[in-house]
């Protein structure tokens, strides 16, 4: 479960990057996501996209890490985008009343079991 959290960085060009996340983001794995995320926020990077279509479960520590990303983006002037949220992960953002705070791509993927 948690041990399988994987990250893949896709540099689109010098100013755009995508971080693909696959696995459960929990109190045990979110520090690793933070370690992957933080170096992406530089003065030259204008768009940081986190692709979450491989994430089925995210707890408050995962959301807190993404809130940090939002704060880093504001400091560096980049755009921070979340995309590919499953229905479950999007629901957690809604429960925390943070779904309108983030720049979230409108497309919601179908649950894998569907």
């Amino acid at each position: 479960m948690d041990a399988n959290l994987k990250f893949t960085r896709h540099d689109q060009n010098e100013t755009q990057v995508v971080l693909q996340v696959d696995g459960d983001v929990t109190i045990h794995t979110s520090p690793r996501m933070r370690d992957q995320l933080k170096p992406l926020f530089t003065a030259t990077m204008k768009e940081i996209r986190v692709e979450l279509n491989g994430v089925d479960f995210m707890d408050s520590s995962g959301i807190a890490t993404l809130v940090e990303g939002l704060q880093w983006a504001r400091l560096t002037g980049g755009r921070f985008i979340l995309s590919g949220l499953s229905e479950n992960v999007r629901d957690v953002f809604a429960l925390a009343k943070l779904d309108t705070v983030f720049d979230i791509d409108a497309n919601v993927i179908e649950e894998k079991s569907a």
């Binding site: 940090e68 939002l70 704060q71 925390a96």
Partner: peptide, 15 residues
């Protein structure tokens, strides 16, 4: 939730 001054523990309780 105060996004600028997030308290992770508070976020858990909120959830």
């Amino acid at each position: 939730i105060d996004v600028e001054n997030l308290c992770p523990g508070g976020l858990g309780l909120k959830l």
